[in-house]
Design a protein around this nucleic acid. Structure first.
Length: 368
DNA sequence: GAACCGTGGCA
DNA sequence: TTGCCAAGGTT
């Protein structure tokens, strides 16, 4: 019986690797067939790919390796520049963790990325999946790489009825049995390519699947129903007010967030609210905040509204544009954390997509 | 375990 | 339009 199972596992990986040799995606961090990969490229791409699709990552990855071709370049970079190149990619703590990891690697590991999963796990921003993926893809170790794609594939292979949130450990145990003795990095990437182009979440393309013969759901209309999931919680609606303050030289008031919370370390516009109850703030845009108080002045005000959706809440944004004269700045109470940024310096900031969106809304006013 | 942490594409 | 989801990690 054991012999029979081993044959099954071997056939599975062989068929998958044969498919990979023909169907593999050509990605900028991927080594040519037969060539050894660049561990720095693997690490950088794996961090960027956390919860982020390949097509989104590619241009960011290219910009990063053009600016910092080696890990030592990244380690020595000014974090503000790292943050700025990361802007728009989301999950901004990743940028800080990446930079910290690069610095540790250069300082304590001679700039060499370890192949040991346990060592990789000690770096900030590298968890179980990423450690296994770097080890397998960069050094071809026999690591049990389990990402969302692989969870979906094994959920379907075994027609797992439990919600994915509850079956992760079972899937790890199953997937470990299938690991081949050779080409482990290719094998992991083959599963991921399969998950992204064939065993896709909706409408899986079972007709062209190289491993349909081992799949309990293969070719059945039910395949799309797996993996099953726990019911999603509704995103709460929050309300916030954002202020675009421009002086008569065209400079705009910004602050840089601390290394915490949403938009960690990013450059943002002054805002208040972000609460579920603050809907009433919409009607009093002139009172900004304790740190930034505006009273009894004749402002040129333009008000707009946009919506923005985050991973765990929705934000209804009231946007308020003020044009102020420098001579009246003395009447403002402005916390020291704020600073005016010249129009020509805007492109150097690390602006989250929401902040870019707000600047776009007032583009005509900014150009004036 | 559950909440927090972004964004864009797609149906 | 809305909800879903994607190469997860940290607290």
């Amino acid at each position: 019986m054991r012999k029979k199972n081993e044959d099954k596992y071997k056939q599975f990986s062989n068929e998958l690797l044969d498919w990979y040799d023909v169907s593999r995606r050509d990605l900028p961090w991927r080594a040519a067939p037969g060539a050894s990969s660049n561990p720095y490229f693997v690490l950088l791409s794996e961090i960027m790919l956390q919860q982020t699709v390949v097509t989104t990552v590619i241009p960011y990855f290219i910009r990063f390796i053009n600016k910092w071709p080696k890990i030592i370049d990244l380690a020595q970079a000014d974090f503000n520049e790292v943050s700025s190149l990361w802007a728009g990619l989301g999950y901004y703590r990743r940028a800080k963790n990446l930079h910290e990891t690069a610095k540790i690697l250069v300082k304590q590991h001679n700039g060499i990325i370890p192949n040991d999963e346990d060592v990789l796990l000690t770096f900030p921003g590298i968890g179980e999946y990423t450690a296994a993926a770097i080890s397998a893809i960069a050094y071809d170790t026999k690591s049990n790489v389990v990402d969302g794609n692989i969870e979906r594939i094994f959920s379907r292979l075994y027609k797992i009825e439990e919600p994915l949130e509850l079956s992760k450990q079972k899937i790890r145990t199953l997937s470990k049995k299938y690991l081949p003795c050779k080409r482990n990095g290719d094998y992991a990437q083959a599963l991921m390519d399969l998950g992204s182009s064939v065993c896709i979440p909706k409408a899986p393309r079972c007709q062209i699947c190289p491993i349909i013969s081992t799949c309990k759901l293969g070719g059945t209309p039910n395949a799309a129903m797996y993996p099953k999931r726990l019911p999603k919680k509704n995103k709460k609606q929050r309300y916030g007010v954002f202020y675009l303050l421009m002086d008569d030289e065209g400079s705009i008031l910004f602050s840089t967030n601390k290394n915490e919370g949403i938009f960690a370390n990013m450059d943002v516009l002054p805002s208040i609210g972000w609460n579920e109850e603050n809907k009433k703030l919409e009607s009093s845009p002139k009172i900004i905040s304790k740190e930034l108080a505006l009273f009894n002045l004749n402002w040129e005000i333009l008000e707009k509204k946009i919506n923005h959706i985050f991973s765990h809440f929705k934000l209804n944004c009231t946007l308020v544009f003020f044009r102020i004269k420098k001579s009246t700045l003395n009447n403002l109470i402005i916390d020291k954390k704020y600073r005016f940024v010249k129009k020509t310096e805007l492109n150097k900031l690390a602006k989250p997509s929401l902040i870019k969106k707000i600047l776009d809304v007032f583009e005509e006013e900014i150009v004036k």
